[in-house]
Nucleic acid binder design. Structure first.
Lengths: 200, 200
DNA sequence: ACCTGAACACCGTTCAAGT
DNA sequence: ACCTGAACACCGTTCAAGT
């Protein structure tokens, strides 16, 4: 048990990130206050300011950690289907949707502009780019296999990400008509979305 | 000047919605407090409660009004290009992106889950469905013209909306790599996105 | 019916003080 | 260096009271 490094409880910074994620899952975006997070971590309400400049900085850290986990899950799936490009694409998309549904409020924090000046957080930017690179490499495998149109893999990656991300956002926001959700399973819907950009 | 209906200033409800939209554009989602909105409308901080159950209800009204305006702009464009399906699709998408960029924070409020229990606001649901029907009708014209694949127009509308909405969200969130944004104009990017789901 | 002003619980942030 | 507790300005919501 490698814990306690200093006198109090060692790694408050990460404890706050963890507590933040939990409160986010419980109480939603609007219910996540810095004071609640501090209390959950067992410190005073001003203790977080020893580790984060302000609430935005904690949110940045939570988002960055989210991107890291998203990358881990997506890249594991991508490796697993390395030799089957079309499966790789579908399974990665499915993983993305599941990630969104697993913790909708964290996903919203990561992608809905709760973080206001993302450029001020270089780790956030780096993790986000890492994910885009992963999508790009999946897209390139699919282009090489003749499953996706050729052309700029940057732009194709944007299309692939966009169509799945758009689906995820509409899903979380309850904007997808019930009739459609009843018609097909979520999995089938994701596959249908992707088929739209795939070659016959 | 058809104003003042009652003793004070007539239509506080709509004045609050208008004030809310303005504050949203100025101070962003996190800066829009009910008290500021009330002050801007020239009433006490508790006056809004005569017209809205709570802050969520005001947000619902702002979102609903946003959907109404989006519908107006989109349907005007759709009618203008009635006889040219492919132009109709591209121009409608472009209008959607412009709507998002015109007032990013209102767009985020409409689509980013700031509104927590959207089903409790029937007008919101109705306006949202009206917009989906419009997208569906544009999609159907394009299917008839052989520009989009045939098949369920509900699912195709979801794809078309999804790819543009996803692009809009990534754009607003600053998730689109700079290299890509420098490569092509926004308009070209939107056209590229749509081309992905169009038949060669 | 619509609006005000005081009140309450809660929030983000700062700062002097403690270890 | 890291944390506490008091303090401040601000917030959403309620409620008795006024018109």
């Amino acid at each position: 048990m490698p814990k306690k490094r200093t006198y109090h409880h060692g790694d408050l910074k990460n404890a706050l990130i963890k507590a933040g994620v939990e409160i986010l899952a419980q109480d939603g975006v609007s219910g996540m206050s810095l004071r609640k997070v501090a209390m959950k971590a067992g410190v005073s309400h001003s203790a977080p300011y020893s580790h984060f400049a302000d609430k935005q900085a904690l949110i940045a850290a939570i988002s960055t950690e989210g991107f890291r986990q998203l990358y881990e899950r997506m890249s594991a799936v991508a490796e697993g289907y390395n030799s089957q490009p079309s499966k790789q694409l579908v399974e990665a998309a499915w993983t993305y949707i599941q990630f969104a549904l697993d913790d909708p409020d964290r996903f919203k924090v990561m992608f809905s502009g709760v973080l206001e000046k993302e450029k001020e957080y270089p780790e956030f930017v780096a993790e986000s780019q890492r994910n885009f690179q992963l999508v790009k490499s999946i897209v390139e495998s699919n282009q090489a296999a003749g499953i996706l149109r050729s052309g700029s893999s940057d732009l194709m990656a944007l299309s692939a990400w966009g169509i799945i991300h758009g689906f995820a956002m509409l899903l979380l926001e309850g904007q997808i008509p019930h009739a459609i959700l009843e018609l097909k399973s979520l999995r089938k819907l994701v596959e249908f979305q992707l088929k739209q950009i795939m070659l016959a």
